[in-house]
């Protein structure tokens, strides 16, 4: 029972990190109807940047987040402008799968050249610290990561719901033609939206590098998990991504603790299938546009 409760605690805290990564993924889909297969590679790029800032300049990975998010925002905007904008709108969704996968491979290649294929990890003095609460270990980094995720997701919520730009995004999601007629520059919204999605990957990357060793190929495992989360939560729904991350992370941790880690990785796919059987659009996906 102790191991099980410990597993649930770990699962909840880890869910925050995945929610952060997945929120960017789902934001991009909500705005552009693009499934960004490069989101995992962008998380790893964020981890590498945090690693470099820490090892070269001693900048704490949490404090590096403003720098890495700006850098990844620029990368995201460039990817959208250079690779996605030229796609024809009527088959953009299908072609974007190929294009974003190509971007993932490109990023992987660049990261391999710059940082080699060796494993990296960010070892701050507090990386392995934990608090003992009623006999259970609360890992400091995971707790901070969880709080950071709540903060970042809160910011994202405010941006989408309390700003003019957010209204433009939501208008583009709900009805792009009408939004354009009303003066919303949809291409600009798309570019900035993609940049925002990449920026969330950067924030998550800093935390990911603190929690796990990584290399340039780590994004393959990550992207399958992220896709599961956003599909479970409902493509395009930021709130759904948070719930999806919680469901998947906690269920995986419980199964790994109580049954077997072999089944753990499979658990989220089983949960995903069960949910999709009942709700084909995911937990919070809607048939109409505008689910963001």
């Amino acid at each position: 029972m102790h191991a099980l409760i410990q597993g649930i605690i770990l699962g909840i805290l880890t869910a925050g990190v995945y929610a952060l990564m997945a929120s960017g993924q789902t934001l991009i889909f909500g705005i552009m109807k693009v499934v960004n297969l490069a989101q995992g590679a962008m998380v790893i790029l964020g981890a590498y940047l945090a690693f470099q800032l820490f090892t070269s300049f001693g900048i704490d990975p949490f404090l590096a987040i403003p720098i890495t998010t700006v850098a990844l925002f620029v990368v995201g905007v460039l990817v959208q402008l250079l690779f996605l904008r030229p796609l024809r709108s009527d088959d953009r969704s299908e072609l974007s799968l190929l294009v974003t996968f190509a971007v993932a491979l490109l990023l992987e290649g660049i990261m391999s050249v710059i940082w080699s294929t060796s494993d990296r990890s960010i070892n701050t003095h507090y990386a392995n610290s934990s608090w003992t609460v009623f006999g259970y270990q609360i890992t400091l980094v995971r707790l901070w990561a969880f709080l950071l995720s709540l903060f970042a997701l809160g910011l994202l919520y405010l941006l989408l719901n309390r700003t003019r730009f957010g209204r433009a995004i939501r208008a583009s999601v709900q009805n792009p033609e009408s939004a354009t007629l009303l003066g919303v520059q949809s291409e600009r919204v798309s570019a900035i939206g993609f940049g925002l999605g990449a920026a969330t990957a950067a924030a998550a990357g800093s935390v990911y590098g603190l929690l796990y060793p990584f290399n340039s190929g780590s994004h393959y495992d990550l992207i399958s998990r992220l896709l599961s989360i956003v599909i479970l939560g409902g493509l395009g729904s930021v709130g759904g991504a948070v719930i999806g991350a919680l469901v998947i992370s906690v269920s995986s941790a419980i199964v790994a603790s109580a049954i077997s880690p072999i089944w753990s990785e499979m658990t989220f796919f089983i949960v995903l299938l069960l949910v999709l059987l009942v709700r084909p659009r995911g937990l919070f996906g809607t048939a109409a546009r505008g689910a963001i």
Binding site: L10, A253, S257, P261, S264
Partner: peptide, 14 residues
């Protein structure tokens, strides 16, 4: 555990 297991905390916790 499979090679794609990123988080070994549940295993080591058990």
């Amino acid at each position: 555990y499979p090679s794609e297991t990123a988080d070994l905390s549940p295993v080591m916790g058990a």
